[in-house]
């Protein structure tokens, strides 16, 4: 039982009976002062008030945003025709972009969950010195302007440390160049989507009581076993939610990809890049068609999240 709840009950009882009571037995909170005094009976019983203005105002403000989204989607649909849509999707460049988008988003999402789960868990369970620093750092990719993130990635890979350079080493030493290739697409997507995965996993573990882990440890688990056998199974909905959010976020990624991976057709082109490229050559029909395709993909992802979300809250 929450402490506030107990306090409130206690306050209520005091207000009604007018005597101090120790509610040790009920929940273990003792208060010496009266938390609130009941209002005096001043409102006349014949007075009738309406909640209609409240709902009108709240509903009106809410509707303005809902309308905006609906109108945006409706305009897209009205602009394009099915023929445009089909033509755009039959273009080999766009098909390649669609494939790369599916693969890169999935890889980025899996990596995000893989990294976000331990980080979210540590942030949720442990109070360690410098936790607030890590907490803040995790949010940086979320608040950073996308182009700045892309530029930062580019600089990181091409910064000369004496003779050494990360990109040169990856290209010549490892044989795996990154910049302006598909790995750059995934890394750019990962840098942002992982931050969302960490946030989601942290909230997930915040909602899972550490008590079951404690008991598991008394039953013979190490911390690792308690995490794997007891907490992780309880977190599966959060894991799927984190994966979905990461995936959706990776889908929308554009700025960092443009800067760090370039916009080479058939090679580093993802759907968001396609929209940009089609738009830049004045092919508005194809741009809108690809946009609608992305809308459809995002809606599917959001629906999955919705279904899981209702499951989570129940």
């Amino acid at each position: 039982m929450a402490a506030e709840e107990v306090l409130e009950q206690n306050g209520w009882r005091q207000a009604v009976t007018g005597r101090q009571e120790d509610i040790n037995a009920a929940g273990g909170v003792r208060t010496s002062q009266t938390p609130f005094e009941g209002p005096t009976q001043s409102a006349s019983p014949s007075r009738q008030r309406s909640d209609v203005p409240f709902f009108l105002l709240m509903g009106g403000l809410s509707a303005s945003f809902i309308m905006l989204i609906v109108l945006l989607l409706a305009a897209d649909f009205m602009f394009t025709s099915f023929a445009d849509f089909r033509d755009a999707l039959l273009k080999p460049e766009i098909q390649a972009a669609f494939r790369l988008t599916l693969i890169s988003c999935t890889v980025a999402a899996v990596l995000s969950v893989w990294v976000g789960t331990p980080l979210g868990y540590l942030l949720s369970r442990y109070k360690f010195p410098g936790r607030w620093v890590i907490d803040t750092l995790v949010d940086i990719p979320i608040v950073l302007p996308p182009l700045v993130l892309g530029l930062s990635l580019l600089i990181l890979f091409h910064l000369n440390l004496g003779e050494w350079q990360l990109e040169k080493w990856l290209r010549d030493g490892v044989g795996f160049p990154v910049t302006y290739r598909w790995p750059a697409v995934i890394l750019a997507q990962f840098s942002v989507s992982c931050a969302f995965a960490v946030r989601t996993m942290r909230v997930t573990f915040d909602q899972i009581s550490p008590r079951t882990e404690d008991v598991a440890r008394t039953l013979g688990c190490t911390r690792a076993q308690a995490f794997l056998l007891v907490s992780l199974p309880q977190a599966w909905k959060g894991i799927i939610a984190a994966g979905t959010i990461s995936w959706a976020r990776a889908l929308g990624e554009f700025g960092p990809i443009l800067v760090f991976a370039g916009a080479t057709r058939m090679r580093t082109e993802v759907l968001s890049t396609s929209v940009f490229l089609e738009l830049s050559i004045g092919n508005l029909d194809a741009a809108v068609a690809v946009s609608l395709l992305m809308v459809a993909m995002a809606v599917v992802v959001l629906l999955i999240l919705r279904v899981l979300g209702t499951g989570l809250s129940s």
């Binding site: 008590r211 079951t212 008991v215 598991a216 440890r217 008394t218 007891v230 199974p233 309880q234």
Partner: peptide, 21 residues
């Protein structure tokens, strides 16, 4: 000792049964 190495049976106030099992 780690809790798991002590061999103690513990029933907490909130029971903390494993909900996924």
């Amino acid at each position: 000792f780690q809790p798991g190495d002590r061999g103690i049976g513990y029933v907490p106030q909130d029971l903390a049964l494993f909900p996924t099992m």
